[in-house]
Every structure is written in C-alpha cells, then in structure tokens.
Amino acid sequence: MLEVKDLRVSVEGKEILKGLNLTINAGEVHAIMGPNGAGKSTLSAIIAGREGYEITGGSITYLGQDLLEMDIEERAREGLLLGFQYPVEIPGVKNVYLLKAALNAKRKHLGLPEIEAPEFMKLVREKLAFMKMDNSFLHRSVNEGFSGGEKKRNEILQMLILEPKLALLDEIDSGLDIDALKIVSHGVNSLRDAGRSIVMVTHYQRLLDYIVPDHIHVLSDGKIIKSGDKSLALALEERGYDWVIEEAAQ
C-alpha cells in the first residue's frame, strides 16, 4: 500500500526526517508514536502534500505510484485521506457541499457518474447517525464553531463517506474527552477492512486501547528506531521513550 524509503526532509535548512523507512501493507493498522519534535507531524505533512518542506532524499510509493509526484487532490482521489490534527474551519462552505464535491470528485476519477441527490442524502444521513451527529450539521459551515470533538468526528465522517484505501490519522485523539474518543474510535474501527490500511500518528497510548494496531513504530529524531506489536505500546506506557532511544543508540 505505502512504502517510505530512506526519506529525508528538511524545513528551512534543518533536517527533520533523517532516513525514515516504513512499509504499510493492505489491511494493516499501524501506530506511529514518539516524543515531541521527533518528526511525526512532518511525516504526516509530507504524505498529505503540504508545501514548505524540502525533500532531500528517499521516496514514497503509494499503490505503485510515486506519491511525491502526485497533486494533493490526486492523492485523495486515489484513496489517500488525511485526518487533520487541527481540522481547518472554512466559514461559508457548508459541510454538505464539501461532502458532495469530494465524493463526486472521487467518483469521476473512478469513471462513475455523479451521485444522485436522494442516494447521496441517504448515505450522508446514515453516516451522520453512525457518528452520532445531527442532520443540521450538514448546513453548517465546515468546522466553524465546532468543538474539538465535533471537528474530529467530522474528519471521520468524511472518511466514512469517502472510504479511503489508506487513512492517515494525525493526532486524531488529541483534545477528545472519553465519550468523543469512543465515537471516533468506533468510526475508525468500522473502516477496518482487509483492503484498507490505517496509520495513526499519536502521542498517547490511550487511543490504542480503542483502536488496537497491528504494528507500532517509535519515531525519534527523524527515524523509526523501534517497531513491534501492540505489546510495545504497554512497554512505552510503563517506561516512556528513553529506554527505546538508549537502546537504539547502542
């Protein structure tokens, strides 16, 4: 699904990612953890296609294509979707317009006709109910005036409707109370599928109690320094990151 090879990225002349390797296969759920400043956000930004980063080496292959050569919208249409850490407020753009435009962009890319209005509304209402969101939300502006939890639920709602092949969730758990975390996790878990991969970038082990990953990676100083199964999360929770960093240094 996704293969990151020896990725090196600088921001304003400072190297942030220093030869990062990561392989994600179809159907897998991965968690990338690590201390502040390790490069987690930079990795998400590069995969999403944000500007302002200098890629000095390495490659990212997504479904056999060179991801770094793809436009932002092309990545989305090919099934790569990023759940933002800080979803942007877009005053004046109704959620229903965004959802419809995004779904139709994907359908067009797949050679399908635009979705009929009644079919679209049925789909959206069903997913709204699943995320415990009110129908009135459709006519509100994207994320405007939403609480932190509502914004994150909105990210997952978009995923439920767009059904990505690879979902990259950047700190999807930050700022969530336990009820919101349960709803968000329920949404993400419902997306788990043999053909779909999920990557969670997170600071906290708590999320992994609700969305249990197949693989856990520790990112530190621009590299993956340790990978393991879900038991690694428990070890990190008990002992912190220092021992992993020390172990890697030896």
Partner: peptide, 30 residues
C-alpha cells in the same frame, strides 16, 4: 483566499478551481 482552507478542500479530492470557487462563494456567503 485562505491557503489553509484551499489545502483542506483539495485534500478531500476537489480540484483547485472548484476549491477556489467554493471559497469564493463562501466569501459571499458571509
């Protein structure tokens, strides 16, 4: 137009012209 909003819309698959269109309409919608 707000570049962050433009990015957010494109990251959902909207082409740049439509994203700009929606943000222009949004400006009027205020």
């Amino acid at each position: 137009l707000d570049e962050n909003a433009l990015f957010a819309l494109r990251s959902r698959g909207l082409d740049e012209a439509m994203a700009r269109g929606l943000l222009t309409l949004a400006f009027a919608n205020e």
